[in-house]
Design a protein around this nucleic acid. Structure first.
Length: 493
RNA sequence: GGCCCGUUCAUCUAGUGGUUUAGGAUGCAGGAUUCUCAGUCCUGUCACAGGGGUUCGAAUCCCCUACGGGCUGCCA
């Protein structure tokens, strides 16, 4: 059994697209699962659309997702890896041209001098429903004399599509049969000698010893041409797996402009790379173990197989992804989560450096099960870093714009002042006593306090947050709340 | 136009001729827990694109139609 060699071959035209990421992921998972080799090959032949900054941006995406390659081009301070390179298609031109000429020499390809007008006419006929017969490609069997007579006229090299039928044995789509009559002799070398995509992919895959071509199903029909080329070039035919593509929430292709098309958008929105990988893997693959959806990266590798791939396109469901992200957040070790949260708080302008590691860990603990995204931490904990400069209007109305509100805050203040050991349990006891003495529910005292301390009606548990906020800060905020309530009373009077 | 691929709850899917009153998850709705939100737990809601066959029996096999997508480039 030969070693598994798979690849992702993106064209670096901007950033790592979510669709490319899916294909990379499935290749990567399969490589890791089968202890094979995962190769990154840049299809950068379209010089106009290629830019070094694009290459970098894309690789950053892979790096964030944790998709690492065993062979691939130099990136940053990492040198080129692997001995089947080069790994940039633009550096492989000589190989492509060499192989094209081999086909030419073996009579499997030919020089074609058809003019643009002649080609247009052919195409028009075929669009009108009348397929051009093979013989319409007049240079296909041209005599050497006729070719020589053209002198140095520009020409393209076309592949001589053989008669018969081409069968694509696809791991996902099954056996797809293509009648070769449906395929025109296609160009493999442009007039300037540049290889065309179909030739380049096949030469690269063949020479790099790719064993499984796992890619988007937009290439399914192209695979027919590719199989013919593999056979003509006498390369080992890889296994094919054409995966359905990822659609946006509306069922359309992810356009480049759309938020979320760039995998790093998800990072910026507070999603975990392991959650994105998990979610995307579920878009078109089902684990053997039924009714299981939550996987770490390692668990995904362990569980992955090419046997349980779906064949229909899937829409990206943000709600479900959010849920899954929350699941991953909940399973993160506290210190890991804390360290991912800190930069986000800093980004929001909060001085986390003023807090101890222990304090930050505790803060993480009281928020962990409430977060859907990492970014949620900002509105969950902002009041720790800046005093609430305003109070939620609806909550004010409910808690403070009624008789006895000030007295209630007074009672709360007294109770808090009396607490010696400032921590969760004594706080809880104090509130229980308050509620009991007033003959009301705990919430009657908790809600106004929350509003005073955080300015909001929602947030972490009151006793937890009060403990972290500290006695002095709490009392100061109660004081401010009282002042605020007084102004309310005056305004009403 | 031609060829190829796809179509199960709102969404992701399980299901490969009978074990299925079509299962799970998300969402949504309701309930429980609780100091709020969230979380957690429980309950409910919701689907085989349509039409023909084949068969004792079809979501599962075949054909047609519709819809979506791809290819049909000297783009990749």
């Amino acid at each position: 059994m030969s070693e598994v060699r798979v690849r992702i071959a993106p064209s670096p035209s901007g950033f790592l697209h979510i669709g490319t990421a899916k294909m990379a992921l499935f290749n990567w998972l399969y490589a890791r699962k089968s202890v094979g080799t995962f190769i990154l090959r840049l299809e950068d032949t379209d010089a106009e659309r290629t830019d070094e900054a694009f290459v970098e941006a894309m690789c950053l995406g892979f790096r964030w997702l944790g998709i690492d390659w065993d062979e691939g081009p130099a990136f940053g301070d990492e040198p080129e890896k692997g001995d089947r390179g080069p790994y940039r298609q633009s550096h492989r031109r000589d190989l492509h041209v060499r192989e094209a000429h081999r086909l030419l020499d073996e009579g499997k390809a030919y020089k074609c001098f058809l003019t643009k007008e002649e080609l247009d006419a052919l195409r028009e006929r075929s669009m009108a429903g009348e397929r051009a017969p093979r013989s319409a490609w007049t240079w296909r069997d041209a005599t050497p004399d006729r070719v020589a007579a053209m002198g140095d006229q520009p020409y393209v090299v076309r592949f001589k599509v053989p008669d018969g039928e081409t069968v694509i044995r696809d791991l996902v789509q099954g056996e797809v049969r293509i009648n070769n009559d449906e395929i025109d002799d296609f160009v493999i070398l442009k007039p300037n000698g540049d290889p065309v995509f179909h030739l380049a992919v096949v030469v690269d895959d063949g020479l790099m010893g790719i064993t499984h071509v796992i890619r988007g199903d937009d290439h399914l029909t192209n695979a027919g041409k590719h199989v013919m080329l593999f056979e003509a070039l006498c390369y080992d035919l890889p296994q094919f797996a054409h995966l359905p593509m990822v659609l946006d929430e509306h069922g359309k292709k992810y356009s480049k402009r759309m938020r979320g098309a760039n995998v790093l958008d998800w990072r910026d929105d507070g999603y975990l790379p392991e959650a994105l990988i998990n979610y995307v893997a579920l878009l078109g693959w089902t684990p053997e173990e039924e009714n299981r959806e939550l996987f770490t990266r390692d668990e995904l590798v362990e569980a992955f197989s090419l046997e349980r791939l779906g064949k229909s396109a899937a829409k990206f469901d943000l709600k479900k992804f959010q849920w899954l992200n929350g699941q991953h957040i909940r399973r993160l070790p506290l210190d890991v989560l804390r360290d991912r949260l800190i930069p986000i708080l800093q980004e929001a302008g909060f001085d986390t450096g003023a807090k101890s590691t222990e304090w930050l860990t505790q803060m993480t603990a009281i928020c962990q099960e409430k977060l859907a995204t990492l970014n949620d931490i900002v509105r969950q904990t902002d009041f720790f870093f800046v005093e609430p400069h305003e109070y939620e209007e609806k909550a004010v109305k409910k808690q403070w714009k009624k008789d006895g509100a000030l007295e209630k805050m007074q009672l709360i203040e007294e109770a808090l002042t009396g607490i010696e050991a400032w921590s969760h349990d004594p706080l809880k006891t104090a509130y229980e006593r308050l509620a009991e003495q007033a003959g009301v529910g705990l919430g009657q005292f908790i809600h106004p306090t929350r509003l005073a301390l955080t300015g909001k009606s929602v947030g972490p548990g009151l006793f937890e947050l009060a403990e972290l906020l500290g006695k002095d800060a709490c009392l100061a905020r109660i004081q401010r709340a009282k002042d605020f309530i007084r102004t309310l009373g005056e305004a009403q009077a």
